[in-house]
Design a protein around this nucleic acid. Structure first.
Length: 276
DNA sequence: CACCAGACCTGTCCGC
DNA sequence: TGCGGACAGGTCTGGT
């Protein structure tokens, strides 16, 4: 489900409700989604602690607790991190419920159960491979045109697969990659190496724009995605490529094509995104 | 290194 | 109505 704009929206919507609250109890409904430590240790590290701070890195949501434990959540395809007020009914597919000191709950719910959750000491954070190896974030000072040119050069794979790799750029997923390739006019099957300097400059701007627009729209709700208080995003109304296979291109009217790239469904305009 | 299939899971949709 | 297959916003592993 969620890519960087969705996680950022979740973080922002949760913050006013759960920051500063104490977690009085932890209810494990599906403990296999806890990857570290053991379920017993997980509970003992969290119970009784206040939520000092919320952070986001790439597609990871991180709650920093008063005892310097980092509650790290990755939602994968269908996970949700949501606040339920004292009188709200339970979420479907709740997997782990954190009972707060004001009678509300912070709920980790996940239909497909592919999501992961950790309660780590600071010195254990490097055990989470994906988190330790994340590249720079779009919109950050580290994500420069020069950096993008540098990582593109010499790479022989497909640009689409390349942009999905979190160790190069953190936070892009299937929706936003299709969008920024469309806006930049780059065919998803091209090699990163073939992207010219001018195209890299444009791609850099398009990655930032697509992510910024996604955040401003509160994310993209295609199916399950909801923000931290159950609200839908609106960026699905502003998409150019994702989900538009067989429909006319919003720029030129050509019918959009749907193909598979690296096993992922991929939509592009054969006219605006020519191969050569 | 590149690339793919398969794995991890459940739910939904589409064609027969 | 029922069944089988494809597909879904993500990552990881193992094989070629």
């Amino acid at each position: 489900m969620p890519e960087m704009p969705e996680l950022e929206t979740i973080k922002r919507s949760l913050e006013p409700h759960i920051k500063g609250r104490r977690i009085d109890d932890v209810e494990l409904l599906l403990s296999r989604q806890i990857k570290h430590p053991s379920p017993e240790e997980f509970v003992s590290r969290i119970k009784g602690q206040r939520i000092r701070e919320l952070q986001r890195r790439g597609k990871y949501l991180i709650l920093v607790l008063d005892n310097d434990i980092f509650l790290v959540i990755h939602l994968r395809m269908s996970g949700q991190a949501c606040y339920c007020g004292p009188n709200d009914s339970d979420r479907k597919h709740s997997r782990i419920i954190f009972h707060l000191d004001d009678g509300a709950r912070f709920v980790f719910a996940d239909t497909r159960t592919l999501g992961t959750i950790y309660a780590m000491r600071e010195d254990e954070l490097s055990m989470i491979n994906g988190l330790a190896e994340l590249g720079p974030e779009p919109l950050s000072d580290d994500f420069t045109i020069e950096y993008l040119k540098d990582i593109l050069s010499g790479k022989k794979g497909k640009i689409k697969s390349f942009l999905l790799k979190q160790n190069y750029i953190a936070g892009l997923g299937n929706i936003y990659v299709d969008e920024c390739l469309f806006l930049a006019g780059i065919n998803p099957l091209r090699t990163p190496d073939s992207v010219t300097g001018a195209e890299a400059k444009k791609l850099h701007a398009c990655i930032n724009k697509v992510i910024e627009d996604g955040i401003n729209d509160g994310g993209t709700t295609f199916r399950d995605y909801r923000d931290g208080v159950g609200g839908k995003g609106s960026h699905q109304n502003n998409l150019y490529a994702y989900g538009r296979g067989g429909q006319p291109c919003r720029k030129c009217g050509t019918i959009m094509e749907k193909i598979k790239v690296g096993g992922r469904g991929t939509v592009y305009c054969p006219n605006c995104q020519k191969l050569r």
